[in-house]
Design a protein around this nucleic acid. Structure first.
Lengths: 338, 338
DNA sequence: GACCGTTTTTTGATCGATCAAATTTCGTTT
DNA sequence: AAACGAAATTTGATCGATCAAAAAACGGTC
């Protein structure tokens, strides 16, 4: 072995006085090799500092041990901090399974489809994780066609039948989050709890509103429960809440996001009504800094769940990743009280 | 070619009636192939939907076209949103250069060194980007030893001689950010500008304070310039600023972070001194929501710069990434006025 | 049209591992 | 000690591309 170059399996075999295949077996199927031989081989591996060449192995096995993740530009749906924390967690978990996380960027759907095709042709990834899947996602169709296992972070909105999405998914249960938040405020400030959310319909928004309605609706009688809307801006939220506080009709506000909550909170404080409790959603640094309670999504849990779906339970050694069976899972978020 | 399987270079060659190597040349060195032949080959590529197998190519060329990035857990130094935006930007730029970004996680230095060794042995990455490099970083030493090109996001703190770091780096010029912020406040509210930062010495903190001192020092005479400190909490910052406002000695506050700025801002508002201007650092969503001016770091610019250092200017086709020459670059952040 | 220097194309070897099958070694049994 | 089946090990082929060198085709000159 030439010094300065990295050792190959051949070098190890020669050093240990065995054949290539035996070295390979020591690494990949130790049960096939006698104890004494294993020792010899391990000694040689240590001595030469050998570690298998990833590319050669992947070429031969046709497996890349890599999971592709699209890194969305900041936009609607799952993005920003939640996505980034998800990627963080995914990277850590993947690493314990000997998997790698490969990022790719795409500005348009076409570009992403091209990426997926390239991945399929080039054998770059063993599986792909999608985010923000609309109903009838063309990426899902392509991935199925190209026989690449995949799962989604987020359920497609507007699909009635959660049981039959057609591909595996994991999502955060927004309704459960606002349910918990509403139940908490109910106990703390009483029944006069408003909801502050986006003006237009959106899957995420509707989901979060639903949790509030499920608790408040049966009590207050549906039509009387105050529902506010505002665009995604602190000042607008502030204005809406201010007028509501003048009438003295509410004691608590459940918000679709922390930005809404900051507006509501400031309005309350400035109106001298610090007793009015606000709960936000996303548990951002801003909410933490201002001491506003918030519903914390748990992208880390999503990462674990999605990996299990794709690759089987932790500890399993899988030769070929199985095509995951379509099924969904909702992760319950956690209410952070401040 | 068997239906269901992806086409290989061999299939294309057969279909086009040429040899493997000619197909390879059409893809990698078209100038060596006659125009008419190129057409034939391209037609065959189209017809078969061929795209080269990445693993085979990498095994042969011994290049992975992949850049490794350590994804730090949330902690001091570069992390959180800045790091995530950096990774975002890096992914997008890398993609236009035909490079991929591979993430890896490590909890300890040892674990990271092991990763680096594995990368070197396995030929997984062509280059690595480090973050949060201390002086005498053992990772830097190992990477040099293993001859893996690398660059750092962030300069090692406490090193006097920025010219001789020993490895290439790109960092955000915190002092320039606070300089700009201070100059702005100077014009807007006058000379009575305080600085609010961390209590203990830290590279980042000192850097940001320096920018303020460089502007204020020469004017006010160094000792008289009010310098506040507080831990990283909104309420503590609020308290410090409140007492300063009582004495009516300041009209503006430069802060080391947005969290400090939020505290300062709230203290000013509650003291009825909305005229006191606050400038934060990091331009987080919270500062935006509250309408606080802030210094925006530009991790996207850092990403571009670091890629250029590692791989040469955009558009260059490089067969083997050159070992980058040690040099540093400071990226000037941008003051966002609200 | 034979000769020569380029340009274009093809052939054989190689990257470093695993798969599949052949071969050798081993422990039992008769 | 020969025979046998199981366990351990080795050998040859292969994954799909690029490199290096050899061979063929081409264009121009005399």
């Amino acid at each position: 072995m030439v010094p300065g170059k990295v050792a190959t399996i051949e070098d190890v075999a020669r050093a240990a006085g065995v054949s290539r295949q035996t070295v390979s077996n020591v690494i990949n199927a130790p049960s096939k090799v006698r104890e004494a031989t294993q020792q010899k081989v391990h000694a040689a591996i240590e001595a030469l500092g050998y570690s298998p060449n990833a590319m050669a192995r992947r070429l031969r096995t046709q497996r890349s041990s890599t999971i592709g993740v699209r890194l969305d530009a900041f936009s609607g749906g799952i993005s920003g901090v939640v996505l980034d924390r998800f990627v963080h967690a995914l990277t850590e978990h993947a690493s314990t399974r000997g998997l790698r996380v490969l990022l790719y960027a795409a500005r348009t759907m076409d570009e992403e489809l091209r990426h997926i095709n390239d991945f399929a042709d080039g054998g770059e990834v063993d599986a792909i994780i999608l985010t923000n899947t609309p109903p009838k996602d063309p990426r899902a169709a392509l991935l199925r066609e190209r026989a690449i296992p995949f799962a989604a972070f987020g359920r497609p909105w507007g699909v009635e039948d959660l049981e039959n999405i057609g591909h595996p998914w994991v999502d955060i249960d927004g309704a459960a989050g606002t349910r918990a938040a509403t139940a908490y405020l109910l106990e703390r400030v009483g029944e006069r709890i408003a909801f502050l959310g986006w003006p237009s319909d959106s899957g995420t928004g509707d989901d979060r509103e639903r949790g509030w309605r499920e608790i408040i609706g049966p009590r207050a009688g549906d039509p009387s429960a105050p529902r506010l809307v505002s665009a995604e801006s602190v000042t607008e939220a502030q204005a809406k809440v201010r007028s509501l506080l003048r009438d003295n009709t509410i004691d608590g506000i459940i918000c679709a996001t922390d930005v809404h909550a900051i507006g509501a909170h400031l309005a309350a404080v400035r109106a001298g009504r610090s007793d009015v409790q606000t709960v936000g959603f996303d548990n951002t640094a801003a909410a933490e800094a201002l001491g506003i309670s918030s519903v914390e999504q748990l992208p880390e849990v999503v990462a674990t769940a999605i990996l299990e779906m794709l690759m089987g339970p932790e500890g399993t050694k899988i030769s070929r990743p199985p095509t995951p069976t379509p099924a969904g899972r909702l992760v319950e978020p956690k209410l952070i009280i401040r």
